[in-house]
Design a protein around this nucleic acid. Structure first.
Length: 589
RNA sequence: GCACUCGUAGCUCAACGGAUAGAGCAUCUGACUACGGAUCAGAAGGUUGGGGGUUCGAAUCCUCCCGAGUGCGCCA
């Protein structure tokens, strides 16, 4: 048991029962870190009214019943009725030392849940751009964290692999030839392929309107026919469609490999995979009287959703031409996740603009009985990434930024720094460091701000070695590893007792104990930036300790062993924390 | 018009209803024969967009205004 907040909460709870009676024995008082002491409890303030007495009196009474001498050196009532708690150094030291034997670093066991997480979701035959960065990176961190907490995470990469654009894409693929260089673009620069198809389609539309049939306008007609063939399940069309998807998979996997995320082909669950359910979804909604035909389209109208001029906003589940849109797919997906994946909790890591749509999907599914009350869908809203001008990040020409290009630039910039600072290393090692630092910087920058807030993308800031950045954390890890390298000691062998002598040792040890609660909180609230804040605190606590407390050069052997153990615990915690963020910590940098 | 997300130091961002709103950049002061100075110690910097309200206590909750972004029927 290494989580002081949890232990203190239990102690205070016992005292509450003793002081105020059995009615309060299950009050579960909240303990928070505080600037006035190590921890603070405000339960007396919350309970004072209930017992009709003054908060300070209540607090004093609780303190009198508190049996806590083994872990606290000071307990006092202060302010309007807070209980301030200051831990004993030897207790902190002992708990910090326990982390070294604990494979989970003090992270509490959770009740195991089935949790599908919907994230990344790029489109076939389209470029991944900055918008995909956050949904991919945030989703991946949540997946890693919930898995670490013991849950059964089911990664769901809901790729856009179905719908009207595929008619023109397939026709274009046929036109250029499946083995052509143009088709190869799908694996490296899919936008070029998509744009070509799009341009051809638009030109064909124009030609068709202007002068009737011809070889150009023919393309639009062929594309439309191809969509129908695709939805009908025509084998030849399906084969071509699959080829498009396969080409795109190669591209996705390139990006994922570069980015270092845990998604694999096994996690692909694109829109097409729900195709067979769409008809039944519509039929059932119609039969239950939830959906009605309006202007030729089958729609679900719900009272709580109104749009312009107070008119109800529909969730269109079957278009007037008989086709299905993403509303239908999303309903089928939700149904599948509840019924087949046995979801206890469903997480959508999706852009903030989709909020209304998702809420309508949830509401419709609840209405239909596909989403039981105990299953809670959560939309982790992803905010936009902005450029220096405060507008959505784009290239100078106004196009959205290619994710691949952005990652390459980050690596290049990191490489330039490494080349300057570490000319002693060989090229291969420098290259590896540049990869880890460049990618780590981008991912960390993305994760360290609240997922729903927009943030300004700035290479210089994210690659800085100071501040709440990836490289700062990586540097802290590199220095720790350097200590062990220089001392000829393996971190696993640093298992001595921890004794606290210096104030920076105390701060470091106490901060270490915060890892478990922080990870649990990230799992509950789905906010990775809290883990970043924590790791930044930890890295700062370590560098401060590192400045003030020599480890290898400590004069007494006992002090040296203690500091080595503290350093080893820090290393493990930082590396584990960064791993949950999907940020690699190089051996040196 | 309605809905969602926001408005915090010069800049970029934090703050789970709790005391004196915190970091980092930038600025200024200190500390280098360094277990890796890509650092550390410190200073300065705020009427939390504005007005009301809820309560022991509000950046946080409610309400009204001002401002920004996004979304509101056949793209996904």
């Amino acid at each position: 048991m290494t989580d002081p907040q949890h232990v203190l909460s239990q102690r205070v709870q016992a005292a509450l029962g003793a002081a105020l009676g059995d009615d309060f024995a299950d009050a579960d008082p909240v303990i928070r870190p505080s600037q006035f002491a190590d921890f603070q409890c405000n339960a007396p303030l919350a309970l004072a009214k209930r017992v009709g007495r003054k908060p300070r009196e209540v607090a004093t009474e609780i303190v009198n019943c508190l049996d806590i001498g083994d872990m606290c050196r000071e307990v006092e009532v202060s302010g309007p009725g807070f209980i301030n708690l200051t831990l004993r150094d030897d207790w902190i030291a002992a708990q910090a030392r326990q982390l070294l034997d604990d494979p989970r670093l003090g992270v509490p066991e959770q009740e195991r849940q089935n949790i599908p997480i919907d994230y990344s979701a790029p489109n076939v035959a389209k470029e991944m751009h900055v918008g995909h960065l956050r949904t991919t990176v945030v989703g991946d961190t949540l997946a890693r964290t919930l898995e670490f907490l013991g849950h059964n995470v089911i990664r769901q990469n809901h790729i856009g692999d179905w719908g009207t654009p595929f008619g023109m894409l397939i026709e274009h693929l046929l036109d250029v030839g499946e083995d052509s260089a143009e088709a190869e673009l799908l694996k490296s620069d899919p936008n070029a392929f998509y744009q070509a198809a799009r341009a051809k389609f638009d030109a064909a539309e124009e030609a068709a309107q202007a002068g009737g049939p011809g070889p150009v306008s023919d393309f639009a007609a062929r594309s439309r026919a191809r969509v129908v063939a695709l939805q009908r399940g025509d084998p030849a069309t399906l084969r071509l469609w699959r080829e498009l998807v396969d080409f795109s998979k190669v591209y996705f996997n390139k990006v994922y490999a570069k980015l270092g995320v845990t998604l694999t082909d096994a996690d692909l669950a694109g829109e097409s995979s729900y195709n067979d359910m769409l008809g039944a979804v519509c039929d059932e909604l119609e039969a239950k009287g939830i959906a009605q035909v309006s202007d030729g389209a089958l729609c679900v109208f719900l009272d709580e959703f109104t749009g312009r001029e107070g008119r109800p906003v529909p969730l269109i589940i079957r278009k007037s031409d008989g086709g299905y849109g993403y509303g239908t797919t999303d309903l089928a997906t939700l149904k599948y996740r509840v019924e087949e994946l046995k979801a206890d909790r469903i997480i959508y890591v999706v852009g903030a603009p989709q909020n209304l749509h998702l809420r309508m999907v949830y509401a419709s599914a609840r209405e239909a009985g596909w989403l039981p009350d105990h299953v809670v869908p959560t939309h982790v809203q992803i905010g936009n990434v902005l450029g220096e001008d405060g507008k959505i990040l784009r290239t100078r020409s106004g196009r959205s930024l290619r994710l691949m290009a952005l990652l390459d630039e980050a690596i290049e910039r990191a490489a330039a720094v490494v080349a300057e600072t570490r000319p002693d290393l060989d090229a291969a090692t420098r290259d590896e460091i540049a990869q880890d630092v460049g990618i780590g910087a981008v991912k960390y920058a993305d994760l360290s701000v609240a997922h729903d807030s927009e943030y300004v993308f700035d290479f210089d800031r994210m690659l800085a070695l100071n501040g709440n950045t990836g490289p700062y954390q990586q540097y802290a890890v590199a220095r720790i590893r350097s200590i062990f390298r220089k001392g000829g000691i393996s971190p696993e062998d640093a298992t001595g007792d921890i004794n606290i002598g210096h104030s920076t040792e105390r701060t470091l040890a106490l901060t270490l104990l915060g890892f478990g609660p922080t990870v649990a909180q990230v799992g509950d609230e789905l906010e990775p930036h809290r883990l970043c804040s924590y790791l930044f605190d930890l890295a700062q606590a370590f560098t401060s300790f590192y400045e003030h407390c020599p480890v290898l050069r400590a004069e007494e052997e006992q002090v040296r062993d203690s500091r080595l153990a503290l350093t080893a615990a820090t290393l493990r915690t930082l590396v584990q924390g960064l791993e949950l963020l999907g940020v690699r910590a190089p051996q040196q940098m």
